[in-house]
């Protein structure tokens, strides 16, 4: 029996969390999140003069008693949060120990679980060149089981197509939303053009850069023929200290470029090693980064 993506203990701890966004967003339906819109809700916002047709249930009778004038109470309307998860399921994610795809699936499951628990609209899109499987949009706890089942069945295939995934997401999402991209950014076409598709005032974008320890600190030695799992492209190397040092410099440059790009465009960037405990990542680092609260 395969290990569940999220352990019951971790799920219990996730129950206390909710998705956080730096921007006040407006959903399509009533939810549990205060929006800018005024309407029916729990949080008092203001008073205004009564006018014909207003619901008499919202009259503030206390003010009428003091001033003998009719005022209507206005509340912040509570709406749901739209959260789109873009999950890289290309073959390059099927690498590392701990496996990058498994780690990404756990992370996506945790985020989606928190969102569904809080009545947020959650959708999950897997991107690779072969298939574009999608979950949602879904809202509410009844979808949690289905979501976990969906993630469980996900398999890596094809090459990375970050650009197509981001463009499709940007076209599909017309309202304010949180976009969480979980990828290793190892796209031969680069990530700049892809992420630029998501630069919009209404979108709060998180880029979670997932790398395995074998990618960050390779332990290769000797004469090797490196084979790309996605493209089958081969590179012959003689791995020595000098070569590995240059490799690490290029990796640092990739991470720094991703961070700088996100910073300039108001996105959040987070580099994550797959040997990081998922609990630590979600409960601590994501809360610190402002993606979770509670």
């Amino acid at each position: 029996m395969t290990e569940p993506l999220l352990t019951p203990d971790f799920l219990r701890r996730l129950d206390r969390l909710e998705l956080e966004t730096r921007r006040v967003l407006g959903g399509q339906v009533k939810g549990e999140r205060r929006s800018k819109r005024k309407g029916i809700g729990l949080d008092f916002a203001d008073h205004r003069h009564y006018s014909r047709g207003d619901d008499p249930r919202h009259l503030d009778w206390n003010i009428y008693a003091r001033l003998e004038r009719l005022f209507i109470k206005i509340f912040h309307e509570e709406q749901d949060l739209q959260c789109h998860l873009l999950l890289d399921t290309s073959l390059s994610m099927e690498f590392g120990d701990p496996n990058k795809l498994l780690f990404a699936k756990r992370l996506a499951a945790a985020i989606a679980y928190v969102g569904l628990r809080r009545q947020d609209r959650i959708s999950l899109t897997c991107f690779n060149q072969v298939s574009g499987e999608r979950f949602g949009p879904a809202r509410g706890r009844p979808h949690i089981r289905r979501l976990l089942g969906f993630l469980d069945k996900l398999k890596a295939s094809g090459e990375t197509s970050l650009f197509a995934a981001c463009r499709e997401c940007a076209q599909r999402v017309s309202q304010r939303a949180v976009i969480i991209v979980v990828t290793d950014l190892l796209d031969p076409a680069g990530f700049d053009g892809a992420l630029r598709q998501l630069v919009r005032q209404s979108l709060d974008v998180f880029v979670i850069h997932v790398l395995s320890p074998q990618e960050i600190e390779p332990t290769l030695r000797g004469h090797l023929e490196l084979c790309d799992v996605e493209t089958d492209h081969k590179v012959e190397i003689t791995a020595n200290e000098r070569l590995l040092k240059i490799y690490r410099q290029h990796l640092d440059a990739l991470c720094s470029a991703g961070q700088a790009f996100c910073l300039r465009r108001g996105m959040q960037y987070m580099l994550v090693r797959t040997d990081t405990p998922i609990e630590e990542l979600v409960l601590m680092r994501m809360r610190a980064a402002g993606l979770m609260k509670g």
């Binding site: 390059s92 994610m93 690498f95 590392g96 990058k100 290793d184 190892l186 031969p188 395995s212 990618e215 290769l220 000797g222 004469h223 090797l224 023929e225 490196l226 084979c227 790309d228 799992v229 996605e230 493209t231 492209h233 081969k234 590179v235 012959e236 190397i237 000098r242 070569l243 240059i246 490799y247 410099q249 290029h250 990796l251 990739l254």
Partner: peptide
């Protein structure tokens, strides 16, 4: 002839750049 050991990596993108840099 030098027989190189085959090693699968997630991507040769960075390795290719490394070789070019070298």
């Amino acid at each position: 002839k030098l027989r190189r050991q085959r090693e699968q990596v997630s991507s040769t993108l960075l390795w290719q750049k490394t070789i070019e840099d070298l």
